[in-house]
């Protein structure tokens, strides 16, 4: 059975696209058949995160408008053959994204893939609601910061009302992914802690991705962080999150909690 995931947040810049690429690659690395879809029409970036920007010929809007067939728009990753990208259009108007068109594309993808990961645009407008429309489960990407937490709360409300599952009276499974977490600052009381965010949003935790220079390095070279440096702290956190998505029981490590006294005293170096 295919699982449709939406990676969403409300707020921009919190790490939706980075997380879509990293989780998609991690699941594919584990042998799953994965397609990642960019829903950010006009501002596509998932192609860049995957290093596939020069291979885009057709896109989601072309498929919806019947200009191209779905297989023509799918771009296979060069590193992982079971990871596929469906890019967004960079030039078209976002109104070209229609409810019927998206439904057709998702239905067709459900037959071919284990995981369909929809990278939502920021905001709560059409693009974001269409990205979540068909979701079986949602990954809410949140930074431990007031505006991000507030917007996540708003998005959780939309997931409970605007999705097909919600309209049928079913529940969309919701998973919280906390990104850009800085354990040292949280310990000093300068940043909301994991417990603070979980208590405020009361949503189950999928993973904690520590702030790391590896994430920027990965985007610089066009590779998901889970492939560019699989041993780095953020990559390991994404791999753990991917295994939890598959239903595996992986212990949750809160970054910084196993840290020794010396590290506590002399501060932290990003991984």
């Amino acid at each position: 059975m295919a699982q449709v995931l939406v990676v969403t947040s409300g707020k921009g810049g919190v790490g939706k696209t980075t997380s879509t690429a990293a989780l998609g690659a991690a699941l594919a690395h584990e042998g799953e058949n994965v397609v990642v879809i960019d829903f950010d029409v006009g501002l596509r970036n998932l192609d860049l995160m995957l290093g596939a920007e020069r291979r885009v010929v057709f896109d989601l809007i072309n498929v919806i408008q019947g200009v191209a067939k779905l297989p023509q728009a799918l771009i296979r990753d060069k590193r992982l053959e079971n990871l596929v990208l469906l890019p967004a259009s960079q030039t078209r108007d976002k109104d070209a994204l229609t409810e019927d068109g998206v439904a057709r594309v998702i239905a067709e993808l459900r037959k071919k893939f284990d995981w369909i990961i929809c990278d939502s645009p920021a905001g709560i407008e059409r693009g974001a609601t269409l990205a979540m429309r068909h979701a079986d489960a949602a990954i809410i990407v949140t930074n431990p910061e007031v505006s991000s937490v507030r917007d996540s709360d708003r998005i959780i409300g939309l997931l409970d009302s605007k999705t097909i599952k919600a309209e049928r009276g079913e529940r969309v499974d919701k998973h919280l992914l906390i990104t850009r977490y800085q354990p040292a600052r949280a310990t000093r009381g300068e940043m909301l802690s994991i417990d603070d965010v979980l208590e405020i949003l009361s949503t189950p935790l999928l993973g904690i991705i520590p702030e790391s220079e590896e994430v920027l390095r990965a985007s610089n070279v066009g590779s998901p962080v889970t492939l560019s440096n699989a041993q780095s702290a953020p990559a390991r956190a994404y791999f753990d999150a991917a295994r939890r998505l598959k239903g595996m029981d992986v212990p949750m490590l809160v970054p910084g909690e196993s840290r020794g006294l010396l590290n506590m005293l002399f501060g932290r170096k990003a991984a």
């Binding site: 910061e145 007031v146 937490v149 507030r150 709360d153 708003r154 949280a186 000093r188 009381g189 300068e190 940043m191 909301l192 802690s193 603070d196 405020i200």
Partner: peptide, 17 residues
């Protein structure tokens, strides 16, 4: 630190919203 302030502000705000 300022995190407790953030937490309190969020709790009040989100309760209303």
């Amino acid at each position: 630190g300022s995190a407790p302030v953030a937490r309190e502000r969020l709790q009040i705000l989100l309760a209303h919203e």
